[in-house]
Nucleic acid binder design. Structure first.
Lengths: 254, 254
DNA sequence: GCAAAAGTGTTTAGCTTACACCCATGA
DNA sequence: TCATGGGTGTAAGCTAAACACTTTTGC
């Protein structure tokens, strides 16, 4: 057997699926698209698509993200963040029966984005929307949305979403990743509300303020202030160069 | 275009590659096999192989691990650990040029095992050995082993190994995973030497002892004692049911 | 006895927590 | 004036780091 013989190994289709998270109205939300064709026609699914023949996995994920949201994924190593989203590989799902049509291995990616006006449909999806992850993850308990659509996601996307949410929840503990949910300029209170939405807890505003402003390199003041949240004007910050938080932000027990 | 048409998407080969780590003679070591055929013939590589047509990714990784080492990967959820190794998915590597022959996507897995007598060759590898990761990771700086073989690993396996080592180093901070490097019964000192080997640091034996014995569910005394390390007899322990360490073990700055 | 490794006790410093308190704005 | 969110001060409690000290074996 020659190692160059394509018949010597099974052929797989490879896709990328995206867990795109954002914080909207104090709730952690994920981008879902309605499937326009079988299988799972009419059901909600994570955005994604086939990896092209000469495309790297990260490039395929960035392309799908751009097609679905218009966001530019920004390389964590790039100097200018711009209006980009954080994008990282999450995990790979390859159960032989995960797609009834054929053998598909999906390399899931996790994207974190600031709140966007509204998702625009793209590719073969005929509609797209932000949905609170809490509702989507209640799929196991037979949750049904108010419009009568079952919330159960297509394929194994419920599991993929759960893994992505768990990754996001744990990663903001020890990294500065929570700033990826914020616009380029934000206040300490806005950043705190991100943590509260992602973790589903309430944090002490005073201790949170001391913690994030006291961690060198986490936040840099941009000079301006804002009163968009009401109350006393708050300083505006940008994300600093630090990527790890040491000591980490502690997630309350419940 | 029908979604069932195989010509509608590119075909990929999918492999699993294994980062198998152990601690031998106070050094973190990885299992490498010598390649018997091109490309990279004669070079060291990580063990791995093609995923079969109806095989899950985790099953393929467990099969390769068993073929190369005789270890049984044990599901973390299984009740009886036995003589099994820890096995988890690491990351997926799919650069279009990572294999000169064809488009191969590799789903890398990380395995942690107690010290084994000697690796046995299996599959198409004509030899296998444990190599200190420090030597393997110095490949970038033109490191050459004492036998004249360049240590540079085949394909992108140097990067995969580096990612696996980093995962292991960070994961023993906040989980009980370090016990996967120990035999079923071990002393606190032996566990400490695992941490010291993986992190490459020296830890205070007194504070380490208090830390691990004071964390509920981490270690359970097995009743026996041993003097195999010399000095005063040490209590023997087994890994307890706890999988997370809270608060975590702190890695010194270096 | 001596070396070596296992354990215990104690002090100090840093960090988290909880909460009292003041500040600056819009309505 | 009052409600609202921003921001500072401070004392209690927990943890880790550093290290003196005792215990129990082999040689």
């Amino acid at each position: 057997m020659s190692p160059y013989d394509p018949s010597a190994f099974p052929a797989f289709a490879v896709t990328v699926d995206l867990v795109v998270l954002t914080v909207r109205r104090h709730a952690l939300c994920a981008l879902v698209v309605r499937r326009g064709e079988p299988p799972f026609q009419g059901r909600w699914a994570l955005p994604g698509g086939f990896v092209r023949a000469d495309e790297d996995l990260a490039d395929a994920a960035a392309r799908e993200l751009s097609e679905e949201t218009g966001l530019c994924a920004h390389d964590p190593k790039a100097p200018a963040p711009g209006n980009g989203a954080h994008l990282e590989q999450l995990a790979t799902y390859g159960d032989p029966k995960r797609d009834p049509r054929m053998r598909v291995v999906s390399v899931a990616h996790l994207a974190l984005s600031p709140d966007l006006p509204a998702p625009r449909a793209g590719g073969d999806a005929n509609s797209a929307r932000w949905a609170p992850v809490e509702a989507l993850l209640n799929q196991e308990s037979g949750f049904v949305r108010e419009d009568g659509q079952p919330a159960q996601l297509a394929f194994d996307h419920g599991r993929i979403l759960a893994d992505g949410v768990e990754r996001a929840r744990s990663k903001i503990e020890y990294s500065s990743l929570a700033t990826a949910f914020c616009p380029s300029e934000f206040t300490v209170g806005e950043l705190r509300r991100v943590y509260e939405a992602v973790w589903g807890v309430a944090l002490d505003p005073r201790n949170f303020h001391r913690k994030v402003t006291g961690t060198p390199g986490f936040l840099v003041p941009s000079g301006g202030t804002t009163t968009r949240q009401g109350g006393r004007p708050a300083q505006l910050f940008r994300a600093g160069g630090a990527t790890v938080l040491n000591p980490p932000m502690l997630r309350p027990e419940v």
